[in-house]
């Protein structure tokens, strides 16, 4: 019986192996259509992966920015706390305003002193100028005396005029500076 079985099996196998099939164009067209369809399906897959990766990148950026914002918020609260501590340790506003006023007054005093010094300086300069003027006048007088009528020495009117001129000069300078 086994022999018959083996013979039957061999017979079937031989018949199957002996069969010949030649490729039909229709079958290939069907296959190529399937391959085309598969290729077109692959492209959206790529875009799907591309968009998926884009979403992941955006999510990552979002979380990073959120964490950064949280850190900055923490820094801000810390700085606020530090500021509050500093304020507690610093003097009050009134005290600061008083000190500022005193400083301003001091500066004003300094400016006034400087002005006074400047005035004194200008006075001395004017005196020197007047002396020079006087010497030049004396020279002129000497020349005139040699040539014409002699002038009076130490004329009080001239002195008054010169003083008046000097004062005017000083007031002009002072006024311009003020």
């Amino acid at each position: 019986m086994n022999m018959n079985h083996n013979k039957l099996d061999d017979f079937i196998r031989q018949e199957v192996e002996a069969s010949d099939f030649t490729m039909q164009e229709q079958d290939w067209l069907r296959m190529s259509a399937i391959l085309d369809e598969k290729e077109t399906k692959k492209r959206p897959g790529f875009w799907r992966w591309f968009s998926f990766s884009g979403i992941i990148i955006l999510l990552g950026l979002g979380t990073y920015l959120l964490s950064m914002q949280k850190e900055s918020d923490n820094d801000y609260t810390q700085s606020q706390q530090e500021y509050a501590r500093n304020e507690q340790s610093m003097p009050t506003k009134k005290e600061t305003s008083q000190t500022k006023e005193s400083e301003i007054q001091k500066e004003e005093h300094k400016v006034d002193e400087e002005l006074i010094n400047q005035q004194n300086n200008t006075q001395t300069q004017s005196n020197q100028n007047s002396n020079q003027m006087a010497t030049s006048n004396q020279n002129d007088e000497l020349i005139k005396s040699e040539t014409s009528v002699p002038l009076l020495e130490n004329n009080p009117a001239e002195k008054k005029i010169s003083e008046y001129l000097v004062k005017n000069y000083i007031t002009n300078i002072y006024g311009a500076k003020r």
């Binding site: 018959n4 079985h5 013979k7």
Partner: peptide
């Protein structure tokens, strides 16, 4: 039972 011989075809 199988009684056939398929040696020739």
């Amino acid at each position: 039972h199988f009684n056939s011989d398929f040696t020739e075809s």
